[in-house]
Design a protein around this nucleic acid. Structure first.
Lengths: 243, 243
DNA sequence: CGAAGATTTTTGGCATACCAAATACCAGGA
DNA sequence: TCCTGGTATTTGGTATGCCAAAAATCTTCG
């Protein structure tokens, strides 16, 4: 019942060591706007619309019920992320990536993921590695991935994110997530479509096996080659998918 | 003398094809502030000062001669970069990385650079690869790197950046530059100090050789191991260097 | 003196107003 | 009807002002 104070000096009375978590800072409008806009951008299929998508500060501020100030700050952040580009006196355009850029990003992703695999072989616990198989427990000979592309795609992404998390490297996790957001924006390639889905599952299992075997070099190579395979796929078959 | 118009339709009269370059967009205060603050943060030795460095919006706006608005937008951008963290009603603190974080970043850097090396073996021109040696032309048996650590460190960084640029992958270049900015902030490790400097040069040359030989796997491995070596060094000897 | 409490100051968050460049729109003239 | 100017409007950029939470400072009472 005693209201907790922040006096740090006199231990006259031992304070109840209750788990008080430093009350939620009530995220600012700036951050709320950032999250909202980011989600909105990721949700829309920017590659589907013919003409480029533009944002309007005033319209957004009205829609979100806040002034332009926090909106502008959020826009500035999104611009740092590379999601939008603001042109003075022109407007704010949602950035569309070219096929080349997407391929480039997937390559970087491959680099980071292979490093994650490398680290995992030396630090992760066996049970955590084995747990990676669970993402694909719903698929097998009697339920082929290529027959449930959408669902498999979700499992696919979850697997990759879980894999990288196992590296316990915040940097790898963050960088990869950022890249993935951009790549996913291009949803027509649902991370390797039907024709790639078939080979995907065995490759994933092979990666897991290498991890379990603590074979650093092999795990790294398999992780890298797997994702580079996606890059090559996009590079080869992505023509018609991009404007 | 005729003022150029932007009409694109009727070629009634051939327009003077004067080299008019779309007047410089006069970068905004927001961007100027961003650049200025970023440089200031990178220039100061944040790991040298005992207590954490704080920024003050009003003070900055006064110093830079602009209002708080563009300053705040710049701060928002820097926060996205991970250089500062703003605490509501508290202040803006310049982020200090822990040793673990620095090591983590160097590992990610190793991953990206090894991918760059990989790409280079398949696309770069021989003369561009060979040109990488020039960065170290001032060093040799008669002028050891460890006797000119500061100078060698500069050459070192320039080499790595040039190397990654050769990959012609904007993503790799950008991500690496970002990481490097954070790592360099910790200048007491001048990218591998004296004791590492000795082994650094031969390793660089070995990387170049592998690139010239177009040995993809070897180049990748050497690039990776070289930078991972730095990570290991920091992890082992960085104790006293961090608070 | 010392400490609890009240008050002032500081600091980031947000709203608003105004500016200038770009653009859209419109009326007049060939 | 179709340009040509010119004017109104739109849009991002910037400056200010005020607010509330925190911190710092001062005050007062035991």
């Amino acid at each position: 019942m005693p209201a907790r104070k922040q006096t740090k000096a006199p231990p006259v009375m031992a304070e109840a060591d209750i788990a008080i978590v430093r009350i939620a800072p009530e995220t600012s409008f700036k951050n709320k706007a950032y999250e909202a806009l980011k989600e909105a951008i990721l949700k829309m299929d920017i590659y589907a619309t013919p003409e480029q998508v533009m944002l309007d500060e005033r319209a957004l501020s009205e829609r979100l019920g806040v002034s332009r100030t926090p909106i502008r700050e959020a826009i500035a952040m999104l611009e740092q992320d590379g999601f939008v580009r603001t042109v003075p006196r022109r407007g704010i355009v949602v950035v569309r990536r070219t096929k080349t850029e997407i391929v480039d990003m997937i390559r970087a992703w491959a680099a980071l993921e292979s490093m994650a695999a490398r680290l995992i072989t030396t630090t992760a616990r066996k049970k955590d590695i084995t747990a990676l198989r669970d993402f694909f427990k719903d698929f097998g000979k009697d339920r082929l991935p290529q027959d449930h592309v959408e669902e498999y795609s979700k499992a696919n992404i979850a697997f990759h994110q879980a894999l990288i998390s196992l590296s316990e490297s915040p940097v790898l996790v963050d960088l990869t997530n950022d890249l993935l957001l951009h790549v996913r924006g291009y949803r027509q390639l649902t991370i390797g479509r039907k024709d790639r889905t078939a080979t995907s599952l065995p490759e994933h299992l092979a990666i897991i096996e290498a991890l379990e075997a603590r074979d650093t070099e092999l795990a790294e190579k398999r992780a890298r080659d797997h994702t580079l395979g996606l890059a090559a796929y996009v590079e080869a078959h992505g023509q018609e998918l991009f404007s």
